[in-house]
Simulated scan of single mutants.
Amino acid sequence: MDAAQTATVRRPSGAGGTAALVAAPTTSLPEWPGGERNRDYRYMWHRDAALVVLVLVRLGHRAEAGACLRGLLRHCTASRGVLTPVPDIDGRTDSTERTLDHLEGYRGSRPVRVGNAAHEQRQLDVYGQVLDAVLVFQQVTAGSGDGSGAGAGLDEDERATVYGVADTACGLWREPDHGIWEIRGEPRHWTTSKLYLWVCLDRGIRLAEPTGDPGQPLEKWRAQRDELRESILTHGYDDGVGAFVQSYGSRNLDASLLRIPLLGFLPGRDPRVLSTLDAIAQGLGEGPLVHRYDPRATADGIDDPEGGFLLCSFDMVSALVLAGGMDEARERFESLCARAGRFGLSAEEQAADGTMLGNYPQAFTHLALIEAAMNLEDAGREDSLHAWATRGASGPG
């Protein structure tokens, strides 16, 4: 199965395994040769795991999607709705980071790290990542009775866990965090984090409305969702830049905001989306590659450069499809696919000369590739494509 081949899966012996997928099976492969952007990716990130669920559902692999989703929900249950990033495959959340100073590292790139200090951060986007996957899974499987083991959708306890995540997010959206890129500095009001908190509330409301589950504060969630949307449109978009910006008060571009139309926050042909795509292509583009941000402008604490971010490069393809830019989308997609390694696999990043950078193989690179391929395939069926982007009930499956 294409999606499963892009990540390492371990199901411990005995009943019930974890169905956990790590972001990559490697540590400390540098994001720039000789640099110090070296991290340990042998952990499960909620955002990566949620994207696995979305891709598996869309490919029709419902039982596998259910196994992955329920692994995510076990973490949500254990944490009582407060999501801690970077659990390991056994569910533990303390991945203390240390350096192995006796090792030189790949091409002299030091330090070599074991563990990941991101587990200590607050990353608010993960709330929306999980709820987005839950909504799609529930839409496709609830009451389907397909015999896959996923046909009943979520049970009452699982839905209660999900609602707990949504209610927690309701009280967090005004707070800063470390963001989707896990910047190791002072927390900021990252626009992408606000976007995914909006997603969390939106999906929580849409999950609760048809089930009739009692006791959910839907009016509060609706009010907070609307207020959050207005906050993003007011403070996340800069008229002078002509784009949604990296954080409130900044003028920096950030390619994670390519997902705005992919999440149904705004239509793909909205002028603010179109201008954001143009700004990112001009300011962060390098051929078919798209850099996630400008490290110096972002002040991420590391002076080293980095390569084009392949997740964002494929997200540009998907965003262009929704924007109606089919010719450019297809050209970018074909160019990116031609840059894959000899085994058809890709790392987290890539240099302009084709050198793979960062940990390898990187799960979300391949998941974004699959998503882009499916969006290109659906481009001629606008109703289906629109339904998927807005998470309409007829979209997935």
Rank of each mutant, 00 (worst) to 15 (best):
A3P: 05
A4Y: 08
A4F: 12
R10Y: 11
P12G: 13
A15H: 09
A15R: 15
A15N: 12
G16N: 11
G16V: 10
G17S: 12
G17L: 04
T18Y: 15
A20R: 00
L21Y: 14
L21H: 09
A23V: 07
T26N: 02
S28Q: 04
E31T: 13
P33I: 03
G34M: 05
R39P: 01
Y43I: 00
W45M: 03
L54R: 13
H61T: 00
A67N: 05
L72M: 15
R74V: 12
R74S: 12
H75F: 13
C76N: 03
A78H: 13
S79P: 02
R80W: 02
G81Y: 04
V82K: 13
V86T: 09
P87K: 03
T93Y: 06
E97T: 03
L100M: 07
Y106P: 01
R110W: 05
R113E: 02
N116H: 06
A117W: 07
L124C: 00
Y127H: 00
L131C: 11
L131T: 14
A133M: 07
Q139P: 14
V140F: 07
T141H: 08
G149E: 07
A152M: 09
V162S: 09
G164D: 14
T168N: 07
A169M: 11
R174A: 03
R174F: 02
E175T: 14
P176T: 10
D177H: 09
D177Q: 00
I183T: 14
G185C: 02
T191L: 03
L195C: 03
L201G: 11
L201W: 12
D202P: 06
R203T: 07
G204H: 05
I205T: 05
E209G: 07
G212D: 08
P217Q: 01
P217A: 13
W221P: 10
W221C: 00
Q224F: 09
R229P: 01
I232W: 01
L233R: 14
T234Q: 13
Y237N: 06
G242T: 14
Q246F: 01
S247W: 15
G249C: 14
D254W: 06
L258I: 04
R259M: 14
G264Q: 09
D270N: 09
T276Q: 07
G283I: 09
E286N: 10
H291P: 01
Y293A: 04
P295V: 08
R296M: 03
T298F: 10
G301A: 10
I302A: 03
D303I: 01
D303W: 08
P305G: 08
L310S: 04
C312Y: 02
D315T: 05
M316W: 13
S318K: 01
S318C: 09
L322E: 14
A323K: 05
D327A: 15
G344L: 02
A352D: 02
M356N: 12
G358K: 06
N359A: 09
Q362L: 11
F364Q: 02
H366T: 04
A368Y: 06
E371Y: 12
E371N: 14
M374W: 10
A379C: 13
G380C: 12
R381C: 06
D383C: 08
S384F: 04
W388M: 07
A389Q: 07
A393E: 10
G395Y: 10
G397Y: 05
